[in-house]
Structures are given as structure tokens and as C-alpha cells.
């Protein structure tokens, strides 16, 4: 039973991170129908920026919570800036192009960003400082759930709620929903579609950066390649839940997290990634619209 609980919590933590990244995928796909392959790289750049800033601050003599907050804020700003720039360079000129073009451009961007970090920084794994604070009241539950796990799950929950409220009640959120529904119509009604798309990328990137910081300080090491696998898995989560749907992304992230956690715990740990990919293939075959997605009829 203890083992089961451990796996359950492990899956929950993992799934929360997937959900955070998946939200970015789902929002971008909802609005411009593009799989933003570079999204995983944004997450990686977020983690790298946090690592660099945190190290510099620590060496300058700061410590504790102030390092965490400063590093996170800078990382989120930078990740958003990268997301914004990537959209302007690689996707915006291709709005009217064939479907395949932006996709290839996205893959190119992802390869470019990976190698940019590889060349400018290093190909080795870097140790990531454990920025997340230890919560004393968690000691009693330490065998199931550490403080960093609790923080990850709580942050994801808070972020999702804020995002949902943002999309439901603010003017920008309304504009986003309108653009997702029908871009041309939204444009006719005076929505600045370019700004909406930029904002979507900025918000998605910020969420990815938060995910990057959380998982990096939980696992404790990063390299330039972490974005690739995390990106694909988060995409799986987004598809699993129904791409374009925000609760779907969270649900998908959690299901994927649990699947991986239980499969590696009870079956074999060598095939961790195989389970995720197999799950992706199975969903796409049997329920391409995802669990919470609406299947749409293609109109001519």
C-alpha cells in the first residue's frame, strides 16, 4: 500500500509538470492550430535561465527565498520573451502558408534553440540548486510526499485556476476565445489578432518556465536536451485530454503522469518513455479528439 501511495504521489508530481507545459501547447493549438515544437525548448531555456541567475545570486552572497523569487521572475520574463520572439520569427510570416510549412519551421526552431544552448552553455548535465524551501509541517508525511512535491502540485493547481479565470473573465481572455473560434470573424469585430497570438505565446511560455524551474529544482540537474522529451510528453498530455481544452490538458497531464509512474513501478523502468509514446499512439487511434475534446467535422 505504501508503495502504491508513493507511486500515486510520484505520478501526481510528474503529471503536474506535464500539465503546466501542456497548457502552453493547448492554448497555442487552440488559437493557431499549430503544434509549437519549440515549446519544450522554451521550458528548457526557462530552467537554464533560472539556474544561471540563481547561481550568480548565490555567489553574490544571497540565499533563501529571495534567490528563488528573483530567479523565477527573471526566468519567466526571459521564457516569455523567447516565446514572443519565436512566434514573430518562425510562425508569423507563415500564417497564410500551407499546413506543413509552419510545422517544419517549428521543428527547425526547436533544433536551433537546443543547439544554441548547447553551444553557448554546455552539453553536460548541470547540477541545479534546490531552490524550493523545505516545509517543516511536511516532515510527518515525508515518506509519501516531500515538500518540493507538495509545492509542485500546489503551484500547478494555482496556475491552472488563475489561467481559467483569466480566460473566462478578462477582456484578453475573451479575445482569445473569440480568436480560437474564428480568427477572421474576430478580426472583423475589432480584435487585434496579432496581439492575441503574441499574448498566447507569452502566457504559454511563462507557464512552461514555471514548470521548468519546478522540475529542475525537484530533480536537481538539467541539460540542453530536457526540453525535447518533456515537450513530446506534454504534447501527449495535451492530445490525451483533448487539444485546445484547458481542463483537458491538466487531466491529460495527470493521466500520463500516473501511467508512467505505475508502469515504471510495477512493470519495468527501462521502458518509461515507451509507455508514454504507446499511450499517445493508442489515444490517437481510438479517440483522436481526446478525452474532453469535441470531435469536429471537417468542412470544405
Amino acid at each position: 500500500m505504501d508503495y502504491f501511495l508513493e507511486l500515486l504521489i510520484g505520478g501526481l508530481t510528474r503529471g503536474s509538470i506535464y500539465a503546466l507545459i501542456a497548457l502552453g501547447y493547448t492554448m497555442v493549438y487552440g488559437i493557431i492550430e499549430l503544434i509549437n515544437f519549440a515549446h519544450g525548448e522554451i521550458y528548457m531555456i526557462g530552467a537554464f535561465t533560472a539556474l544561471i541567475i540563481a547561481s550568480v545570486l548565490t555567489m553574490a552572497g544571497m540565499s533563501g527565498l529571495s534567490v528563488l523569487i528573483l530567479a523565477s521572475v527573471v526566468a519567466v520574463i526571459y521564457a516569455s520573451a523567447y516565446g514572443f520572439t519565436v512566434e514573430k520569427i518562425a510562425y508569423k510570416p507563415l500564417r497564410q502558408a500551407q499546413r506543413l510549412s509552419p510545422l517544419i519551421s517549428a521543428i527547425g526552431m526547436s533544433i536551433f534553440l537546443q543547439n544554441y544552448v548547447l553551444i553557448a552553455q554546455t552539453s553536460d548535465f548541470l547540477p541545479f540548486p534546490s531552490l524550493l524551501p523545505e516545509l517543516p509541517f511536511m516532515d510527518a508525511y515525508a515518506q509519501f510526499m516531500g515538500s518540493s512535491e507538495l509545492i509542485i502540485v500546489a503551484t500547478t493547481a494555482v496556475m491552472t485556476i488563475i489561467l481559467t479565470l483569466f480566460i473566462k473573465f478578462t477582456k484578453m481572455g475573451k479575445a482569445m476565445r473569440a480568436t480560437a473560434q474564428d480568427r477572421n470573424m474576430a478580426m472583423l469585430l475589432g480584435v487585434n489578432v496579432n496581439r492575441v497570438i503574441s499574448n498566447t505565446f507569452i502566457i504559454g511560455s511563462a507557464l512552461a518556465a514555471v514548470g521548468g524551474i519546478l522540475i529542475a529544482s525537484h530533480i536537481g540537474r538539467i541539460n540542453f536536451y530536457i526540453g525535447f522529451i518533456a515537450g513530446i510528453k506534454a504534447f501527449t498530455a495535451a492530445v490525451l485530454g483533448g487539444i485546445g481544452s484547458i481542463p483537458g490538458a491538466v487531466l491529460g497531464g495527470l493521466i500520463l503522469g500516473w501511467t508512467e509512474s505505475f508502469a515504471t513501478g510495477y512493470v519495468s523502468s527501462d521502458y518509461e518513455d515507451v509507455f508514454a509514446f504507446a499511450l499517445l499512439v493508442l489515444i490517437l487511434i481510438f479517440r483522436p479528439a481526446g478525452l474532453l475534446g469535441k470531435s469536429t467535422v471537417q468542412k470544405v
Binding site: 492550430e33 499549430l34 503544434i35 499546413r99 506543413l100 510545422l103 513530446i232 504534447f235 501527449t236 492530445v239 527501462d270 521502458y271 518513455d273 515507451v274 509514446f277 504507446a278 499517445l280 499512439v281 490517437l284 487511434i285 483522436p288
Partner: peptide, 27 residues
Amino acid sequence: PVLRLRGDYLAIVTLGFGEIIRLILEN
């Protein structure tokens, strides 16, 4: 399995397939 999928889904499934083959060979 991927007959019914459109462009972008197809891309990601084939990517997953490639990784599955490599992981199986590795493990």
C-alpha cells in the same frame, strides 16, 4: 494506425514511433 490522422498529429505519432524503436533497441 495513423491513417486517420492529419498532418500535425501524424508528425508527432511518427516521431513517437521512431523513439519507441530506438528505445526498444536500447533496452
